[in-house]
Nucleic acid binder design. Structure first.
Length: 286
DNA sequence: AACAAGACCTGCATGC
DNA sequence: TGCATGCAGGTCTTGT
């Protein structure tokens, strides 16, 4: 599910409920996600005050008292939602429940529910000062929305890469946070074929791709992310950027910018690269 | 070193 | 109705 915009939406949705609050209890119902949860997760968190939520690529960062950070990845199907029901009966895939102590101006019952049917997500604990060297984060590339991320930086990261640009964009060491949807959408906005050799993206073309990445991510964040099957904002609301997809999931449909008839171009095409669907407009993307 | 394929899981749509 | 198949937003590991 969640690529950078969805994780950022989750971060923004959780922040007002979590920041400055204290973990009152942590209930682990299913301890095995993609990695086993730390077995002392509850002990380590209980009684600790939560700091300012952060994000690195697709990872949500929850710092807490004692200079430690709870690192959360939502995998393909993970959600974190806020719940205030006095009597809460956990659902089938509600694996971890964080009860928060009600602070001033907060309801007495607030809990954060981590739900993940496919269990591809993970949680880890890390000392705050070692975050950048943690094995999960150490090889992560630049943040695409960082102003320092520009054409030259992308061009450098793509040097020596003979494979298709689509695959390179999914490599988190090239640029952080891009997944299958936004790789397709950014290549469309930049007018670049997903099959183009990554190393041929340089100069103005690299700048175009960087701008496309930034704009599509910003637009998606503004829409609360994309809800296909799983993504929900922490409030339970859907995201709605999926209504703005130009190519993703739109095989055979008309390209929003091509005015000719579908019969002439076949519309949006689908192909499989490294086992993953790629959607693109063969007419506009070269 | 870069790249592709397989593995990890459940749920859903589709077709027979 | 049941059952098989294929597909899904990720990424780690393995092998070429």
């Amino acid at each position: 599910m969640p690529e950078l915009p969805e994780v950022e939406t989750v971060r923004r949705g959780l922040a007002p409920w979590m920041e400055g609050q204290v973990f009152a209890a942590v209930k682990v119902r299913v301890p095995r996600l993609r990695l086993p949860l730390p077995d002392d997760l509850g002990q380590r968190l209980t009684g600790r005050r939560i700091g300012v939520l952060g994000r690195r690529g697709k990872y949500l960062l929850v710092p807490f008292e004692g200079d430690e950070v709870l690192v959360v990845h939502l995998g393909m199907s993970g959600r974190m939602t806020v719940n205030h029901e006095p009597e809460f009966a956990p659902g089938r895939h509600d694996h971890v429940i964080f009860d928060l102590a009600g602070g001033e101006g907060h309801p007495s019952t607030t809990r954060i529910v981590y739900n993940d049917p496919r269990r591809f997500g993970l949680m880890a604990l890390c000392p705050a000062d070692l975050l950048e060297t943690h094995p999960l984060l150490a090889r992560m590339g630049p943040e695409p929305l960082d102003p320092a991320f520009d054409g030259a930086m992308l061009e450098g990261a793509l040097k020596g890469r003979r494979g298709p640009i689509k695959g390179a964009l999914l490599d988190q060491s090239v640029v952080a946070g891009i997944g299958n949807i936004y790789a397709c959408e950014a290549l469309y906005r930049a007018g670049i074929s997903p099959r183009r050799k990554a190393m041929t993206i340089a100069g103005a073309r690299a700048r175009r791709l960087v701008e496309a990445l930034k704009s599509v991510l910003e637009d998606a964040i503004s829409s609360g992310g994309s809800s296909l099957k799983d993504h929900r904002q922490p409030s339970g609301e859907l995201g709605y950027f999926q209504h703005n997809f130009a190519v993703y999931g739109r095989a055979g449909l008309e390209c929003p910018e091509c005015t000719c008839e579908i019969g002439e171009t076949g519309g949006i095409s689908r192909l499989v690269q490294s086992g993953r669907s790629t959607f693109f407009c063969p007419r506009r993307q070269r």
